[in-house]
Each structure stands twice: as C-alpha cells, then as structure tokens.
Amino acid sequence: MKLTFPLLLLLVVASQPATSATAPYREFDPMEDYLPHVKGDMSLSGSYKHWKDPANLDWRMAGSPDENWKLNWKFMDPPFNASVHGGHFAADRGEEIFHELNRKVGRFGKFAICLGARKGNLKGLRSQYPMYRKDLKRVAGLEEVIEHCAAKEGRELQNGSYDNSAVSVYVASQSTGMPIKINVTANGPLKAAYERGRKVFHARAGRINLACSSCHTYQIGLHLRGTVVTSPYGDVAHYPVYRTRYQLQSLHLRFVECNLATRTQPLKPGSQAYTDIEVFLTGLTNGYPVSVPSERD
C-alpha cells in the first residue's frame, strides 16, 4: 500500500493515545549539587561574601544596579531599611486579624496552636516553614496553613490574598532576625519535597522554554533588559514582601509573576509544584535571617 500524506497523518494521529501512556518528553537544565544553606551561594554566584557579615555591608554598592544584587537587597530589609512602607501597614493589619482569630481555649490561642506555635508563642515559627502538616497530610507553606487554620475559625483568608499575606507578615515579623532552619537532608516528606522542587526548578516550560534555573543559576548578575538576575539563595526569607506594584506579594504570587513573565501558564497559590519550589528555595536559604516586613521595587 502506498503511504500517501493524508494516510500518514492519520496514522500519526491514531498512534497518539498509545504514546500518552509513557512519560512525556520534557527538558531539564543540568542540576547543580546545591548546598542547602546560604553559604552554598559561594559556589554559585559568590554574592554571599558581600552580605554574610551585615555589619560590614558596603553601602556604596546599593546605589549601583550592577552591584546592588550582590548585597541580596539587605539594604531594603529591617533593620537596615528604616523607612515606613506598605509592609508595616500589612503587619498591623495582620496583627489585628491574628488576634480576632486567636480565641483562647485554655491557656493558649487556638489559631496560633493550629499554625504550629509551641505554647502559642510565634517566635521562631516562620523559620520552620514550610513544614510537614499531619492534618493536611502534606508539606505546606505558612500561607497555606494560615488559610487552613483561618477556615477552621470560620474566616476565609485565601492563599495569596492581602489579608492572608498580612497575617503571614505579622507571624513572620515575630521571627525577624532568626535564621531559617528547615531540615531537607533527613529522610522524610520535607526532603522529598526539596528534591521534587529541585527538579521543578530545572524543568523547562512555557512558550519560550525556560526553567527557573535557566536564569537563576547560570545567568546570575547578568542583565535581562533593565533587570539583573539574582541568586536563588536567601531571597525567600523576605516573603511576603511589600512591592509597589503588587501591594503585598506572597512567595507563590511571586512564582506566578515569574511564570507570566516567562510566558508559562501560572498555577494557583498552594499548588504542589509551587510548594515544592518553595521548599527547595527555603532549603537554600537555611541560615539566612527572616527579614520581614521588607519591601522591594
């Protein structure tokens, strides 16, 4: 039988369901052997040496677009940034909502206990997130848990909403200055999420076929038009962050912004892929102090 073009086309189309059962073709950037601690940046971008000692920050670098990324934007964080900005208003709003939700049952507030605060004390809580939640049966970020715990108190605080992020800012602000400390090396759900996140970080996607790592591993410090590509180490300790364009932006909304900028279909906040990337980036941020409320341009 002669294979005509229409027949060939028909054969290819008919064969598609058979191939869909196998793993789809995807591309990944080469995976670096990341150290899950901020000092791992020394073997990636090297910017760590400029900000590891906050007392010796070279403030002249803050004025140059080619240099300021090397300070990890510490000059816009507390206690270096003394200006009052939208992050502080969010912290006030978050405090208000937190106390409305935190009804006392016995000696401690129920909402705080639900968030995972030992004896209702928020100090140090932010530096332990994301964490595995038995009640959710998965690893979850702080904003997802805030949504979950608020719902138990009868209040809707959608992940990514202003009020949700405001509560997150307030809770995080109680840990400002305390180093991020999540264990992604011991076997368990957090390590599994870290490894998945590492893979997603290197997965090519979207209309222009880019992975997070395509820029944030191999192009750090270089220009993309007017912006300078940053290191993946240390950044997540600032979130949720006040940004002039976005009011208050949670980390997952930042991922949405990254996806949209690279023409990739965004996911909803709290999706597993975003949570896994959050775990991966938080693992890289181990040792970096929680820096909230902070602002970015």
Partner: peptide, 13 residues
Amino acid sequence: TLEPKVVVNSGKL
C-alpha cells in the same frame, strides 16, 4: 489564562 490581583484589606484573591 488568569493573573492575580491583590486587593488591599480583603481575604479574597
């Protein structure tokens, strides 16, 4: 495709 819009002092995204 949708993009998020944060509304100040709201629990909805």
